[in-house]
Structures are given as C-alpha cells and as structure tokens.
Design a protein around this nucleic acid. Structure first.
Lengths: 389, 389
DNA sequence: CAGGGCACGT
DNA sequence: ACGTGCCCTG
C-alpha cells in the first residue's frame, strides 16, 4: 500500500511537463525511501532519473516496494485536473493495477478523485556509474535554458568547454557559428547579493547535526558549496542516485533538513495543525500558502520564489545559492565535450523546477544535468558525441 | 574593416522584424557615413531603404566602403540571441565573407560571439527619383498601423485621399466597404488629451481651445500652421540618403526647405516666415502637458522622442510634436491614390521603430512611407495602382 | 526591462 | 511542439 501526499500538485505538473517528451511511459518505483523513476528516453540516448524523497511528501507511507507502470501522458491529463495548489494524494494498493489520485483544494470543499490504469513496463534498471566529475558548473537554470535555446538555432551540437576562465558553449551550423561564454562569478562562495535576509532566522547550526558531520568543517556554508561539495555530488550520483548513505550535505540540508526540523519543532506533525501557523512564518512550506493567493492566478511561481525567501531561515546558504545569478565553476581539470543540443534542450524543460542547474562533466563521460528542488531532484545523463574537435 | 557598436541590440531586432518579410537577402552597405541597405522587395514591387547613421552608433569605424551580403533570416536568428539591452558590436574585415557579432550583457560576465557567413548579392542600386510631394501626412505610427490592419480585412487595396479636410483611407471588398478618415489636428498642435484609443479617429471639434482654455492665444498660430508649418513636418525627414544626388531641384521644397528651416530656427530664417518664431512659442506652451499625459498612457512614447533632438536638434517643440497623437497634413494639392494594402501592411511592421510615420504622396508617383528614429530611418516606396477611381 | 503565463496559430 | 503576441507582475 502506497499513500503519498504532496502539498502542491504543481510539482507533479512541472515534472510531467519536463519529462514527458523524453519519456512517455515509465515505472514509478515506490519504496519507503520515496518515489523514483528512471528511464532511458524514447530513443535510448539519454537517461532520466527522477527522485522524490519521502521527505518531500507531507505524508508518506509505502509498506512494500512497488513499481507503478505509468503512461506519463495519461498521468499528465489527470494531474492537470488538479489546481496548482491542491493537495495531491497518490494511492496504490497491492494490486498495482491502478493508481488513485486525490486532489483537495486547500480551502477544502472541492475534492477530485481520479483513478488511472497502470501498465506493465519491463524496466531495464541500469545502474549509473559512480563518477567523479572533473568539472562542475552551477548556474541559473534560466541562463542555461537561454543558452541552449539560442544555440539550438544555429546548430545541432554544442561544445561545452570548461576552463578556469569560464564555460564556453559553442555551436556552428549553416548560417555561422555561435558561442556564449560565462565567466564564473567570484570564486569564493561569496554571494555578492544581499544575504542579509537569511540572517533573521534561527539556527544555522542545526544543519550540522543533520549532516552527521561527515565533513568536519567550521565554515560550512561557503565551504561546502565550493569546496567539498563536488565530491559529494558525484557520490550522490551513484546508481540509486540518492542513496541515503553519504549524501551531499547541500541537498540534504535543503530538503531533509527542513522537513525534519519541521517535525522537530512541532514534534513531528504530519498534518496541518493550528500551531503550524507559527512555524510557517519561518518555514518554507508555509510560506507557500501565502504565496498561493498571489500565485493562484499565475499558477506557477510560488514554489521557486517562496523557496528563496522562505527557506532562508535554515541554511542561509542553501537559500542563497538557489536564488542568485551566480555562475560557479568547480574544476579539477579542463573539460571539453560535445553534446546534442536537442537533448539538452529537452533537459532544459525542467527549468521551472529549480532556480539553478548543475552540470557535471568529465571527459569521455556522460554529462550529468541536475535540477534539485525541495522535494527531490531530476537528473539527466547524456553521453557526449565523439568528435570533440 | 568595419566595427560598429550599437548600444541596444533591440534596434536591430526591430529592424529585422520590420523588413524580413519584404526582403530576405540584402546588402548592408557600409561606409564612413554609416550603414545603408536598399533593396526591392521580393516581388520587386516595393523598395525598402534603411539608413543607420554613423552617429547612431556609440562607436563607428569603417575604413573602406564595403557591402555585406546578408541573409536577413540568418541575421535575425543570430540577433535573437542577444538580449534587448545587450550592447551589440558588428565587425567585418576586408574579406567580407563573414560578419561577426558580439553581444555583451550590460552587467558583463556573459558574452556571446557569433559569426555569420555572408553571401554575394548583386545589387541593383536604383536611384530614387527626387520628388516634390503634393501631400505629406504625419501621423502616429500606431494609428497608421491600425488603419491598415483594419482595412486589410476588407479588401486588397486602399485608396488614400488627402484634402484639406483630412486623409481618408478606404477599401472595399466582398463583405462591404470601409473607410477611415483622419482630420488633421487643430492647426497649432492642439491635442485633445481625452482621445480614447488610437482606433477611432476622433473628430474633435477642438478648433478652439476647448482642452484647456487656460491658454488664450492669438489666432495667428493656426494660420501659420497651415501656411508655413508644413515645412517643419518635412523637416523631420532629414537630408536624404536615398537620393543624394540633386536634391536641389524639385526636392528643395520638401527636403532642402526643411533643412534650411532647421537652421532658421536656430538663428535666422532663410526664408520669410515671421510668424514662425511666434508660432513656436505658442506651440510650446499650451498643449504640452496634455499631450504628455496622453502619450504616457499609450505606453510606447518615450523612445522616439529622442529623435527629435538627435535628428534635428531643433527646438524642444519638435520633440513634443513628435510624441503627440497629432495628425498633420501638409498639402500642396489634393491627392488620391490607390495602393496594395498588403504592402502597406508590411511597411507598418516598422511601427515599433518610431512613434510617428510620414506619408508622402503625389499623384501618379510612388508613395513614400518613412519611419524615422534616433539612429536613422527606414523608408518604403510603393507605386500606386492605376485605377484611382 | 525582463520574465512568466496564457491563448493563439502554424 | 513551438513560436508569437499580449498582459501582468517583479
């Protein structure tokens, strides 16, 4: 029996928008860790890996591992029936032949119940090799999307070159050549913008304990970002992509942290309670509600924007890194790889899911493009083209 | 070697939007005067003449005249990769087989470098005959666009009739007939602020100072407007690029005259126009405020205003008249001509480039439609249809 | 001014 | 699916 409650149906909408063109049918693998989806794209060139952590749900229960074979198009049709701010509950029983979806408007008095037939999909669960990446680039997702969109006009392949000086995306085609160069923002983790906001909140220390102090370090905030994070990121990219083991501090903090803290503060409330209100002031999740009214019309927005501000309380750094326009490059070794723009363009459809995107590259190895969000992440892998000239 | 820097990439975007449907490939003729483009439209019916003055660039250098054969579609693709506010630099070396474009975001750290292959286009450089136009109409570009757009729905041809009373655009087709009449705004530039939309040509009875009686002014203004003001309208069309030859002759009235007047305003008048001075003062004072308000509401406004000073550097008043919603008609002789709406509709794509458009007409002679902006202008020429019934 | 949503049309 | 135009918001 699976029962998972998502506070905002919008998340699922965005995920489906992001992935549906790459993958039309896939298994949602549910375990007590959360829900994962892993699949090759239809042309078997790229790999998509979605992870929704248990902690990303306001309620989560999965008695037994189960694989739900879903037609993404069908699921999308149904999910579109939910309001962006509806509370979405997924439910499946042992039979695994049907997925029930429940949409509840926040103000109640409107309930949608849907059932979707499931299908059998034989899933080739390919392990993703552990890789230590030579270059990691952390940039605004919109910037990445823009570059890819632009270059797509001129050619079919992008060459991505990373060096100390910056990242250079280039393409050429019939009409000419193009290149866009991004210079890294100041090396240090310093964020140029006003981090003042985050200060207002409570314990930044808290995260330490969550982290398990795997990395003993004094000034975690900036450090982890620039310094120690990269190995972790790579590590987390292993086959089960988010193995609970030694996950990167950064992600964990952003997600688990907030959740746990939530519970801690209020003694593990799973559901909305009056007290929550108080917490909300500081919390990320709550903030969304506020947003909602504003967002109601727009439909989108809330998550990302609220994140930046609302999240700040906890990991100041996490909030910051999410919102800034910085370009960060972490480089072990210069890298130059060529990829099919078409796929990158598809990956970029995940832009609405996160403020920033992380590119991980090593020569000769598939590129990893990651969009991390509060409840989990989407990762894409794409093998480079051979001719890197 | 050509190197030209445009402060706002947006200008080039707009130009390409405006022209690309009429002309798909054309030579950009670069000289130390600036950059010009002249071409027949694809069906060889209309003529397009673009002029970007050297002074329109924040930096301009052209050692040697050169003709860059450009595919406008390709150029547009590339220019779309620039942000509207990016600084755009065009560069071409002697080889003239490639045009380099550099886009720099104002805040830096993002640089786009593009190269476009050039082509050989044998250009028939047709001289544009000097013409003294019998009728000149100066009206808001949006108004013109609106009329053309509306009439296009009903027929394929527009008849444009200009008389003392105003301009009348009419068309007819299967479903019926249509006509829009614009009455010239009150002589001295009075403008009713209350005009609702551009759509309706308001037949204001504002002959008097209805707007703001606050300004009691001598009648002479009106007359002089009628009498000698028209030259001013012409004046806004700067010295002509298109027909550099013998402007002296017939053109003198429309063009040369205006030039002189320019000077006249500043110092002494070359030609008798005693009232002129007075007129200016009159104009300047009363209506100004109102107009401004109206313009702001429209939203576009500002940009073109600069033209006034850049182009002519005349009085402040000129700036004012540029942004107003006034319709000015300068008439030597009544004119009635018929044109293909399709072309006018294409010309109207230049609307984003300027607040106002100037129509110059004489019987039996091609219509000249001009959009003047800070950095230069675009002119279109279109021969009338024969049946002027 | 830029970005994002939305409805539209190709 | 994608590009476009329009409107609104930050």
């Amino acid at each position: 029996m699976l029962e998972a409650k998502l506070e905002q149906a919008e998340l699922l909408k965005k995920i489906l928008d992001a992935v549906k063109e790459l993958v039309t049918d896939a298994n949602f693998d549910c375990s007590d860790e959360g829900i994962k989806l892993q699949a090759m794209d239809n042309s078997h060139v790229a790999l998509v890996s979605l992870n929704l952590a248990k902690t990303g749900f306001s309620e989560y229960r999965c008695d037994r591992d189960m694989s739900l074979g879903v037609s993404l198009a069908s699921l999308q049709k149904i999910v579109k029936c939910a309001g962006n701010n509806d509370i979405l509950t997924l439910r499946a029983d042992e039979s695994v032949d049907v997925l029930a979806l429940l949409f509840e408007a926040k103000h109640a008095d409107r309930v949608g119940e849907y059932e979707m037939k499931l299908m059998d999909i034989d899933q080739e669960h390919l392990g993703i090799p552990d890789t230590v990446y030579d270059a990691e680039i952390d940039l605004p997702a919109t910037e990445f999307a823009r570059i890819i969109r632009d270059l797509k006009e001129l050619g079919e392949s992008v060459k991505i070159e990373v060096s100390k000086e910056g990242v250079r995306f280039s393409a050429d085609g019939d009409i000419g050549t193009a290149s866009v160069t991004l210079k890294p923002t100041d090396k240090r983790g310093r964020r140029p913008d006003s981090d003042g906001e985050d200060s207002d909140e409570e314990e930044e220390q808290e995260d330490d304990e969550d982290d398990e102090a795997e990395e003993p370090e004094p000034k975690e905030e900036e450090e982890d970002e620039d310094g120690d994070v990269k190995p972790q990121i790579a590590a987390s990219g292993d086959e089960d992509d988010d193995a609970p083991k030694s996950k990167g501090g950064k992600k964990r903090k952003a997600v688990a942290d907030s959740e746990e803290e939530d519970g801690a503060d209020e003694n593990g409330e799973d559901e909305p309670s009056p007290k929550k209100v108080k917490k909300e002031s500081g919390k990320a999740k709550p903030a969304k509600k506020e947003k909602k009214k504003a967002a109601s019309k727009k439909g989108k927005a809330s998550s990302a924007s609220s994140k930046g501000k609302a999240t700040k309380g906890k990991k100041a750094k996490s909030g910051d890194e999410e919102k800034s326009m910085d370009v960060r490059i972490n480089l072990q070794q210069a890298v130059a790889l060529t990829f099919s723009i078409k796929y990158l363009s598809n990956f970029a459809k995940s832009t609405p899911l996160a403020e920033r995107v992380h590119l991980h590259m090593s020569n000769e190895v598939p590129l990893l493009v990651e969009y991390a969000f509060e409840q989990g992440h989407i990762r894409y892998y794409l093998a480079p083209k051979l001719q890197d000239d």
